[in-house]
């Protein structure tokens, strides 16, 4: 039972990280239809920037609290997203190029960030400090590492604000309007360029924060980006791109299948690496809309 509860906490924490990555994809896909595969590398960059701020990597230690690093990383991610949209995506949209061109440009951005990370921070993993250390603790009946509980709490915070933004604010409704019908939204006075820029900035911030949150458990490593990108995308496909809460649901399902499958299914341990890919293929082929459908069109 103890074992089960511990696995439950660890799977939930992983699922939250996947969910955050899926949310980073989602806030960009909804209004722009662009799959930004670079979010995984942005998460890695977020982790590296966080480590750089918190350690003596680039300058003498600032002795700032961990929370300030979280804010700096979020701002960094937003800036990266905004800059990418401005420099690489906007010219293509303005030219009327197909969405695939933007997706391919972002693959180039992915490579630039991955190589940039290695160039600046080296190829060996960097340990990332955790705000509450690595104590084991017990919350109610649930045993786990403090960072796992922090991830779960922070993720619910991010998803709650995303949900409130989309459902309760005028800007969020504008995003939805653009997702439903670009032309009509533009005619209603919504600035499409502004929505695109904000979407990329939000996606960048969410991805970077996800990277910083997971880095104490995995350390910051230049190879962490691609797995996060594929797992986040798988989570997105499972949950469906229609709803914010789908991203979290997809992330949790993916992590539970991965971790409980590895523990209890009678397959060799190496084969468990195949679970996410089987899920991704299965959902793409048999339920391409994901588990949660987009809300009914409300005008």
């Amino acid at each position: 039972m103890e074992d089960f509860l511990e696995l439950l906490v660890s799977a939930t924490a992983s699922g939250c990280v996947y969910g955050l990555l899926a949310l980073a994809y989602l806030v960009i896909i909804r209004p722009t239809s662009i799959i930004n595969f670079a979010v995984g590398e942005w998460a890695a960059s977020g982790a590296f920037v966080g480590v750089a701020v918190l350690s003596t990597l680039v300058w003498p230690a600032l002795e700032w609290p961990w929370w300030s690093a979280l804010l700096i990383v979020a701002a960094f991610g937003a800036l990266v997203g905004y800059g990418t949209e401005l420099l690489c995506v906007r010219p293509l949209v303005a030219r009327g190029a197909p969405e695939l061109s933007a997706i391919l440009v972002l693959l180039g951005v992915l490579v630039i960030f991955r190589e940039g990370n290695t160039l600046l921070f080296g190829a060996s993993p960097l340990p990332s400090p955790a705000p509450f250390g690595f104590r084991r603790m017990l919350i109610g009946p649930f045993p786990g590492v403090s960072q796992q509980f922090l991830i779960i709490g922070a993720t619910f915070g991010v998803f709650l604000s995303a949900w409130l933004f989309f459902e309760r604010t005028v800007w969020g409704r504008a995003f939805e309007a653009v997702a439903l019908n670009r032309k009509a939204a533009a005619l209603m006075g919504i600035d499409l360029r502004m929505v695109g820029a904000l979407a990329f900035a939000a996606g960048g911030a969410i991805a970077a924060v996800a990277g910083l949150l997971v880095s104490p458990l995995t350390s910051a490593h230049f190879l962490m980006g691609l797995p996060l990108a594929t797992q986040g995308f798988t989570a997105l496909v499972i949950g469906g791109i229609g709803r914010v809460e789908g991203a979290l649901l997809g992330g949790l399902i993916l992590a539970f299948v991965e971790q409980f499958g590895a523990r209890w299914l009678p397959v060799p341990s190496g084969m468990t690496l195949a679970f996410p890919f089987v899920l991704l293929i299965g959902f793409l082929l048999f339920r391409p809309t994901g588990l949660l459908r987009a809300p009914e069109t409300r005008v």
Binding site: T230, L284, L285
Partner: peptide, 23 residues
Amino acid sequence: LEGFYLALATLAFSQLVRVTIDE
């Protein structure tokens, strides 16, 4: 599958081939 979704499905397929070879 349309557009980039084919890319991601085939990405998953190639990772499956990789796992099979590894194992």
